[in-house]
Write a protein that binds this DNA or RNA. Sequence first.
DNA 1: GAGGGATGCTGGAACGTTCCAGCATGATCA
DNA 2: TGATCATGCTGGAACGTTCCAGCATCCCTC
Lengths: 327, 327
Amino acid sequence: MSTPRATIIDIAEAVGLSKSTVANVLSGTGRFSPATSARVHAAAAKLGYVTNRAARSLRSGRVGSYGIHLPTVARRLPFYTEFALGAADGADAAQADLTLFTSEIDPARSFAVDGAMVVDPEPDAAIVVALARAGIPILSVGAYHGVGEADVAATLDARHDALQREALDLLRARGRRRFVLLSLRRELGSAWTESTERTFHAWCAETGSAGEVLDVSADPARWASDERLAGIVAGDRTDAIVCAGQGTAHASRIILEASGIRIGQDIDLASFAAAPDELLDPRLTVIDLAPTAYGRRAAELLTAIIAGDPDAHRHHWFDGARVRAGV
Amino acid sequence: MSTPRATIIDIAEAVGLSKSTVANVLSGTGRFSPATSARVHAAAAKLGYVTNRAARSLRSGRVGSYGIHLPTVARRLPFYTEFALGAADGADAAQADLTLFTSEIDPARSFAVDGAMVVDPEPDAAIVVALARAGIPILSVGAYHGVGEADVAATLDARHDALQREALDLLRARGRRRFVLLSLRRELGSAWTESTERTFHAWCAETGSAGEVLDVSADPARWASDERLAGIVAGDRTDAIVCAGQGTAHASRIILEASGIRIGQDIDLASFAAAPDELLDPRLTVIDLAPTAYGRRAAELLTAIIAGDPDAHRHHWFDGARVRAGV
DNA sequence: GAGGGATGCTGGAACGTTCCAGCATGATCA
DNA sequence: TGATCATGCTGGAACGTTCCAGCATCCCTC
């Protein structure tokens, strides 16, 4: 059915050279004359030669592919999409593909990657255990805690604590005193979720603000029927709603406006991980996590880790995130 | 730096068997006793054995990974994200990973996949040429025209013509007669874009409706400053705006409402590739392309193609899409 | 108790590449 | 002129798996 692919041996026979020389030419290593190079490339083009990546990997130990794992429940949030596309660009710059790991992980699973990024991993994530077992270098985006923690080569994180405090300070400067944090704790049980709640409580205590946490869903379909928010607003328990989960601010805006509440006047709305839509609304106070640049940075860092750069094996900060005040 | 991984031979030595028997046990093929199986698995677990995918691929010819290519400009549309995640699930069901191909394609590039899906490919797409050259089975989602067309193993498509006519009929039944189609022709130069415009013109001619096409951008940031739409509305040239590009209806809604125009009353709004947000708005007439199921179906079809199923090598319809009337 | 089949296991070849030691040949230098 | 070195190329081993033909051994059957 499928025609057998041409190999370097076929090329070698065609031009009357040894496979070693052909290999040298095609990989650009070793020694060969310009004339030989031209003949080999011509023959390769004529025969439709394409490198067999499996053979290359087997011998060289390099695969040419990076893995990425996104949080199961929240994979659909624009943040992760943007992050993944940025990571794909970053991998591309290192001549590597990007492989998406599915949520189901067999612990004894094998991988065809040189390294992997795990984004906002839940504690004791199966993927981390499986990767560690397979000896794959791991970059954790956001802190990882649990089994295999020692096998994580490096961590990349945005300065969430500082960014969030900056955003909260802006709201306070606008006169807000009663804060409600909408968290995705149940659905996105990552270190980020925890630290966000911790920062929120600490900041509220320090500034003497009222702080309440509400656990909500990332799924907008559930939002439409979520009446707790309306209850809080109706009960006049808050003058600033802070949304941890991406897209939550957008959904909140719809609910609030439907109740005749004016954003930026009756109430302030903030997003700690702004979606594109949310960035476009100037009334919102937002943290733009710059997910595309973030993903690209992660891939670049992973490249350094794989290359064995000793400096790469530690904690890194991503400094591309920005806070913008609502008007 | 990295500890050498245990191989099948290490296990064989540990349990005093030949590598063939160990291989049989681990792959579940061939003949071996239950007792042997237990011993081998125990040793494998103890040594932390993980299959070397490169060696497996080299010998067996199977890679265990599917490739996916998304349209360069429109990658960020939720449709493609959902499609890719559905494809990842479908690949997972076939024990395969999903590899994201970047937009930049070197024509002589090699691939580490068993097959690939190209979604809404532009004519003469470099990726198709490269895949065909590498002998990779190709599934085109949406028609492909151009170089390498004959190398496309199969095509999967939704019944866009029927769906779009159904949606347009619904608008006509609501009394709409002057239609404007917002197209992404310049940015998404796929067969879908073309056929959508063709269907639109044909339907308008058949029903005696007025039909105008406007070429817009997929980027919501540009929408905010796009004044052509406002011009059309202000000029009273239309009573129904039909959006080809996903997300365009959402952006249109914002612009229209800002002008005080009531959706569903003053004007009807339709989306031919509804985004999640758009599905939630009951006033819109939408085609739900069910992208997740679509992507899953594509991966399943690719699995059949790779398995050599002769029935898979032809044109297929995806029947999961639905039209919903606005209220 | 001979024939035949199932069972459990084995050894080696093969997949296509990279890597390495090494071999002519010709140029360069003292 | 002999020693040294760079150049261009070569042959074989190695990577870890899968696949295949085949070899004892045991059990069943007539």
